[in-house]
Computed example of a mutant assay.
Amino acid sequence: MSSSTAGLDMISVDPRRVADLQENLAEVQARVDKAANGRPVTLVAVSKYMPPSDLQLLYSSPHRQLHFGENYLQELLHKSSLLPADIHWHFQGALQTNKCKNLASQIRNLWSVETVDTVKKADALEKGRRSVLEGKGEVGEEGKKWARLRVYVQVNTSGEESKSGVEPPEAHALCRHIHNSCPSLTLSGLMTIGSRSNSLSSSEENPDFKTLVSVRDQISKELGVELGLSMGMSSDFEEAIRMGSTNVRVGSLLFGKRKTKEEMDELKKRTAETEKAR
Rank of each mutant, 00 (worst) to 15 (best):
E238T: 05
R130C: 11
Q218F: 13
S2F: 11
P168W: 10
T115F: 07
D123G: 08
S195F: 02
E141I: 08
V213A: 05
G228P: 10
H179T: 04
P52M: 00
R39K: 15
E238D: 00
K221L: 14
Q106F: 06
S195L: 06
W89V: 12
K120Q: 11
R64S: 11
H172K: 13
Y59V: 08
L21I: 03
E226V: 14
T157S: 06
T246S: 15
I87S: 01
E239M: 08
K276C: 05
L187V: 08
S252P: 04
R258I: 02
R39N: 10
D86F: 12
E266A: 11
E141Y: 12
R258D: 00
Q74W: 14
Q74T: 14
R16S: 14
M264P: 02
I193G: 00
F255A: 01
L254T: 01
Y72Q: 14
A19W: 06
N247I: 01
L25W: 06
M243L: 11
L174Q: 04
G143M: 04
N102I: 10
A277E: 12
E126K: 04
L73Q: 09
L95H: 04
L185R: 07
T274A: 06
L57A: 04
L25I: 13
V116Q: 04
K210F: 00
V132W: 00
R176D: 10
S80W: 03
E226T: 14
L212R: 07
E138K: 12
L25H: 05
T118F: 00
Q29L: 15
V248M: 01
P62M: 04
L95M: 04
V132P: 02
N247R: 06
Q22H: 09
E141K: 13
D54V: 02
T271P: 00
S164N: 09
L43S: 05
S81D: 14
S112A: 15
K221H: 15
V248E: 01
R31Y: 09
V139E: 03
L95S: 07
T260C: 07
S203A: 15
L83N: 00
M1H: 10
P207V: 02
Q65R: 07
L55N: 04
A171S: 07
G189D: 03
L149F: 09
S60V: 03
V13Q: 11
E273Q: 15
D86A: 07
E238G: 00
V213Y: 07
N102C: 05
K48V: 06
I241L: 13
R270Y: 00
V113I: 15
C175M: 02
E75K: 13
K221F: 14
D20Y: 09
Y49S: 09
F237S: 01
L110C: 10
P40K: 11
R39E: 10
P207E: 02
I193E: 02
K101D: 06
W111Q: 13
I178H: 01
R17Y: 10
H90L: 14
L58C: 13
G69K: 01
S47P: 09
S80P: 06
K101R: 15
G137C: 03
M231W: 01
G232W: 02
M233I: 03
V13E: 07
R249K: 03
Y49N: 13
N247Q: 11
K120L: 08
F237L: 02
E167I: 05
P62I: 00
E226N: 12
D54A: 09
I241R: 05
V215E: 05
L227Y: 01
S162V: 05
W146V: 10
R196Y: 15
L227F: 03
E75F: 10
N109L: 09
F209P: 00
E114Y: 05
